[in-house]
Design a protein around this nucleic acid. Structure first.
Length: 993
DNA sequence: GATCCGACAGTGT
DNA sequence: ACACTGTCGGATC
């Protein structure tokens, strides 16, 4: 068929839709040289007429023509409203597998709507005459073969970003002009909603766009005109000659348009050109992050969560369980359908048997009875099917999702969309079963929010409503009007964890709780939130949440309580990843006691306006779903968000501090002030006399912090007046004292703590305990609190450990070796907390819980030491453990020696005695090697991991394994097995109380 | 100029 | 008196 023939035939045709549609389509196939459905898919599996025509209503199928992954195609009679056809296609798109193209035709024109996910829809209208143009024919052909070619370039994300950027500029301009940020926010939302309403036809005749056009000419009229429009929208009525719907929802209640400049209006008119109907409402959040004042930006920013992360919570908490429920219903329904079919075949069989038999009255009667019974059974079954569908739809309609920290409403928006999608699927499934089509009832009522920030709360309302309207229009449903925005109070503007009067707030009953509550570290709570708020938190949550816990944990505890009180079924919340350890973990432990963590992502990167926070996503509550951790099914999820078996004694979070490890490990001195000075300044002072005749060496010593150990020694010294020198005595050390008077005193005098203010010349936490523990040693073991690798080093006892070092008061190589073994490394990584990706070593959780090999625990190694022939030093231990002590010490000694030689090759350095006799030698690089020496850091060494280092560690690990008596089953010693064995040892030993 | 990697000081127990 | 905690800035590639 040629284009001319096609056009001629269909211009002349007066056939009505039903009779002509298929003929038109087949002609079109001939024109495009495409196969017809019957030619390539006689069974109608992927390409057919009347898809979904199984419906009992007797009317159309879901589409007149359907080609999988290409299009749904709907015909209407000539000059009938094509929009109706489009609406129908939209509605059934999910049942058609969401084809990328929705095509409607009245045989005179063909309109192709693109419907690719996440793109701004395009529309192509082709009249009959247009088919003479080969370009248009090619376009149609693509619809059949390569629909991807019609994919719009513009994605909703790009459109949204563009709109948000420009809109943000406007907001910023308005703020800079001195307008109140809240007014700016409110005004911007009104405008935003008007753009949206204009584009989807909620405002008649593109009213708002026209108004801006006029406004550009007559600027002074714009504010009163806008006021007028907003007021009309608030109540419904007429704006000039145009009828305006009643919008309500609070958005237009307080009309207070801000004065706009000519430039603003120009910008607005540019913005009006964008396709706002395809806007992604979640821009509302990002929109107001920009332009508004920094404090607000921070608060709103804290609530911005990207959609993928949101769905990681919404799916397991909201949608998966409901899908599972519906799957079970469907299974039950299938059984009923089978039953009906079985009855029918029984009847048929009876009839066919009867037809061969002799017809008697009794037989007639029997058949009648069988038929009736079958009919009754069918009716009953149908009724049951209908009831199951109805009940489930009712369940969806009554389902409530609460976001108690809803910010700009993104969680609620996505939860609502998910629920609406599910409801729609169920409605279509029900139609397929022969039930009448029902109107979707899930809507903004299904989501509830609590939000303190007044802009965010308003933002959330608008976000949810736009989401609702978009969904309805995109699925071919008309909007419920009068008002368009119902004033149902879905967002509660208040504090979610503390009431104004200091009491505990109630949360509304809901099926599930989701959200991204604000993060604020325990020690920052008081200063950021204020004393009153802090006290209120402390009072309300006494015994439930330790005061040192992150602010985020209050939402977890509240949600847990709601579940315990049966006011919610499950919760899915975002948290900082530090919830896995320290004081924060107690909250998860509590959750594990009363309910179950059934889905979690333990440590995910998070982009949040530049903050380098890492997060955990945690779902807990009543569920039938199997536990899933980091997208893998596991037997159980523990409070530290690790996987484990459900057997008792396998949860490593149950490990407790051991009595034998007490008093051997402590934090270094916490100076809190600029007590540190350059080495050369210290050396200069050491040459100066003091009026009391004492050397400055008494109060000056080298300082060592994490950087000194993991990188190169910075040669920093410290002014250290110890734990009991009085201010008067300190003053005799002239230079150091004067220095502190200038650099430290002014700051320390303003400290929050009385003792820090009073003893300003001493380190704030001078660590008397540590000092006495180290007193009789000549060296001690140190490890950086925060470091990429868990390394231990020897320090001369004259060196003061900074608070960033953990000091272990042992001088023997055996203890050094055990600590440096793989066993302790794994234990400390697992038991310790982390800051971002960097693990942190803490005395109580990593050291005190660690089960040393029997006979070699800190309780056994605190006594005398003995130097071996090699130079290695062992502790004096019971005879039966001596061999192990020696083996470990030799391996550790060698490891340390190799490492020292690599860090400071004798060929590259000079050792120079320090100016004070007992102090460690200075290491001076030979000038020609100083650049190379700079690279010789412990972190670099372990980044490289040369073979000799690995070998030395293997040897050490073997010696330590032997001390544990694990040398014979080395093959079984994978990470999990080691941790299990260590945990078993810990649990078997005596705990501290 | 991006990436790596620990700091410092506040505050709870 | 002891210890834990957060996320920005300096060093380095």
């Amino acid at each position: 068929m040629t284009p001319d023939q096609f056009i001629a035939k269909w211009q002349a045709s007066t056939l009505k839709e039903r009779s002509a549609a298929q003929e038109h389509f087949i002609d079109l196939c001939r024109l495009l040289n495409e196969p017809t459905p019957a030619e390539i898919d006689p069974n109608g599996e992927f390409y057919c007429f009347e898809r979904g025509a199984k419906k009992t209503t007797g009317s159309d199928g879901w589409a007149d023509v359907w080609k999988r992954n290409c299009f749904g195609w709907e015909y209407k009679g000539k000059r009938k409203n094509l929009n109706d056809a489009f609406v129908q296609l939209h509605r059934y798109a999910p049942a058609l597998g969401n084809p990328p193209l929705l095509i409607v035709s009245d045989m005179e024109q063909i309109i192709i709507h693109t419907a690719f996910n996440g793109t701004v829809p395009d529309k192509y209208s082709l009249a009959l005459e247009d088919l003479r143009n080969p370009d248009n024919l090619r376009l149609l052909k693509w619809a059949f073969t390569e629909p991807e070619r019609l994919r719009p370039k513009l994605t909703t994300a790009v459109l949204t970003e563009k709109a948000a950027r420009q809109f943000g500029e406007l907001a910023q301009t308005l703020c800079e002009r001195g307008h109140d940020t809240q007014q700016v926010a409110h005004f911007c939302q009104q405008i935003l909603f008007c753009f949206f309403a204009d584009d989807i036809g909620l405002l008649p005749n593109k009213l708002f766009g026209k108004l801006l056009e006029i406004g550009q000419q007559r600027l002074e009229h714009l504010p009163p005109t806008l006021t007028n429009l907003f007021n009309t929208m608030a109540t419904g009525g007429f704006f000039g000659n145009d009828p305006v719907d009643w919008f309500n929802g609070g958005l237009f209640d307080a009309a207070s348009p801000l004065p706009l400049t000519r430039n603003d209006v120009k910008l607005l008119r540019e913005l009006a050109q964008l396709n706002w109907s395809a806007i992604e409402p979640s821009i509302f959040g990002t929109l107001f992050e920009r332009g508004l004042d920094p404090n607000q930006r921070e608060q709103l920013g804290a609530h911005y969560t990207d959609p993928a992360s949101i769905m990681r919570l919404v799916n397991p908490v909201v949608l998966d369980p409901l899908r599972e429920e519906w799957r079970l219903q469907q299974a039950a329904i299938t059984k009923l359908v089978d039953k009906i079919a079985a009855r029918k075949s029984k009847v048929n069989k009876a009839i066919s048997t009867a037809s061969t038999a002799k017809l008697t009255t009794k037989l007639v009667e029997d058949i009648r009875e069988i038929r009736e019974k079958a009919r009754d059974a069918e009716t009953a079954a149908q009724r049951q099917i209908a009831k199951r569908c109805r009940d489930f739809l009712m369940r969806l309609q009554n389902f409530r999702v609460l976001d108690p920290a809803c910010g700009s409403g993104n969680f609620l928006l996505l939860a609502l969309r998910g629920l609406k999608d599910l409801e729609h699927e169920v409605i279509l499934d029900a139609e397929r079963l022969g039930l009448p089509a029902s109107f979707p009832k899930v809507g903004p009522e299904n989501v509830l929010g609590i939000e303190l920030n007044i802009y965010a709360a308003e933002l959330a309302r608008v976000t949810v409503w736009i989401g609702e309207i978009q969904w309805m229009l995109n699925h071919g449903f008309s909007l419920a009007k009068n008002p368009i925005l119902k004033t149902i109070n879905i967002i509660d503007q208040r504090d979610a964890v503390v009431n104004a009067d200091g009491s505990e707030p109630n949360w509304p009953t809901a099926d599930v709780i989701v959200g991204n509550p604000p993060f604020l570290g325990g020690s920052k709570k008081r200063s950021v939130l204020g004393d009153d708020y802090f006290t209120a938190l402390e009072t309300i949550y006494a015994g439930r949440i330790p005061a040192g816990a992150d602010l985020v944990t209050y939402w977890f505890e509240k949600a847990r309580t709601q579940i315990e009180l049966e006011k919610a079924n499950a919760a899915g919340l975002v948290s900082t990843n530090s919830i896995r350890g320290g004081a924060n973990r107690q909250v998860l432990e509590r959750i594990c006691k009363t309910t179950t963590i059934f889905n979690a992502w333990s440590d995910e990167p998070w982009i949040n306006s530049g903050a380098a926070v890492r997060v955990s996503l945690i779902c807990f509550g009543n569920t039938k779903l199997k536990p899933v951790l980091n997208n893998a099914e596991v037997a159980a999820i523990y409070a530290d968000l690790t996987a484990g078996s459900i057997e008792a004694g396998s949860d490593i979070t149950t490990a407790k501090p051991l009595i034998e490890n007490a008093n051997a490990c402590c934090m270094g001195a916490s100076k809190k002030g600029a007590f540190d000075i350059a080495g050369n300044l210290a050396r200069q002072w050491l040459t100066l006399p003091n009026p009391n005749g004492k050397s400055n060496a008494i109060v000056l010593r080298p300082l060592c912090n994490g950087i000194d150990l993991t990188r190169r020694d910075r040669d920093v010294w410290i002014i250290d007046f110890g734990i009991d020198i009085s201010e008067n005595d300190a003053a005799f050390y002239e230079m150091p004292f004067t220095y502190l008077t200038e650099k430290v005193k002014p700051i320390r005098e303003n400290n929050n703590r009385e003792s820090y203010r009073r003893y300003w010349w001493r380190h704030a936490e001078a660590r008397p305990g540590m000092r006495s523990a180290l007193k009789y040693l000549y060296r001690y073991i140190a490890t950086p609190t925060m470091a990429k690798y868990r390394n231990f080093s020897w320090l001369n006892v004259t060196v003061l450990p900074d608070q960033q070092l953990i000091a272990i008061s042992r001088a023997d190589d055996t203890t050094f070796g055990i600590l440096h073994s793989r066993f302790h490394e794994l234990w400390s990584l697992r038991m310790g907390t982390s800051l971002g990706p960097t693990p942190r070593y803490t005395p109580t959780t990593t050291f005190e819980t660690f089960p040393f090999p029997i006979g070699l625990t800190p309780a056994n190694t605190g006594g005398a030491i003995e130097t071996l022939e090699s130079g290695a030093i062992i502790p004096t231990v019971a005879a039966e453990y001596r061999d192990h002590a020696i083996a470990i010490a030799e391996a550790a000694f060698q490891l340390n020696q190799l490492r020292e030689n690599w860090l400071n090759p004798p060929e590259w350095i000079e050792r120079q005695p320090e100016i004070v006799a007992d102090y460690p030698d200075r290491i001076i690089p030979k000038p020609e090697f100083s650049a190379q020496l700079k690279q010789r850091t412990l972190t670099n060494l372990y980044n490289k991991k040369p073979a000799w280092l690995v070998n030395a560690h293997v040897k050490l690990d073997q010696a330590v394994a032997a001390a544990y008596s694990w040398e014979n089953d080395a093959a079984e010693l994978n990470e999990a097995e080691i941790l299990q064995r260590l945990l078993a040892l810990n649990l078997a030993r005596k705990k501290e109380n």
